[in-house]
Amino acid sequence: MTKTINLNLKVWRQKGQNKKGRLETYKAVDISTDMSFLEMIDVINEQLTHKGKEPVAFDHDCREGICGMCGAVVNGRPHGPEMGTTLCQLHMRHFSDNDTIVIEPWRSRAFPVIKDLAVDRSALDKMIQAGGFISINTGGAQDANAIPVPQEAAELAMDAAACIGCGACVAACPNASPMLFVSAKVSQFALLPQGKPEAAKRAISMVREMDRLGFGNCTNERECEAECPKEISITNIARLNREYFKAGFLSAEK
């Protein structure tokens, strides 16, 4: 038989972007420990709906840890207490009977709350639009092996490309800085030959956009690396810094 637990939830409720929000208390009764965290909120929402109340708004999509849509700060930890896990992949067996769980949205000036736990993360998209891409002329695809890529570089690029853009790095950073995100996006291209032609422009444009969007500055607190559900390393931030200095001081890019 599956085990069930009862929980005291304190959930951030906020009607809209410029509305005042507050933590509301709910009881979660008979929660199966096999449920995911989001399924637990589904149960609460069902109860709220039956009572004629507004369900808790939260973002989610794949529920299998790959899309980056979900995320909330659970007892002070983005995506909850487990390492390398998205909120949708966090299971209730990691909680104990009668635990109090405080659930808050990502907090950053650049991520305004849309409603309850759902925040507007389009700032991340804007940084991608600023330079997180490579330009390729259309036409017949060339042979995949025509450009040699060292295995190690391919691995490092893949590690960086594991970023699902969930924004947990911003939520975790004491300064609300997205450096881990930007560094992953810059790194995945900087490591590969296809990314080199636009490397300088990319580093400058993405950093400039990051600053413009009102994020904080990285001070190497390393909380992002510890909270990232894809366990992206801050060695990527060091690489972003190198790419940025190269672009700023050595390239003709302005």
Partner: peptide, 11 residues
């Protein structure tokens, strides 16, 4: 950096 998070976390 203070300004970057106008609403702080309660936990």
């Amino acid at each position: 950096n203070l300004k970057a998070r106008p609403v702080r976390y309660s936990v």
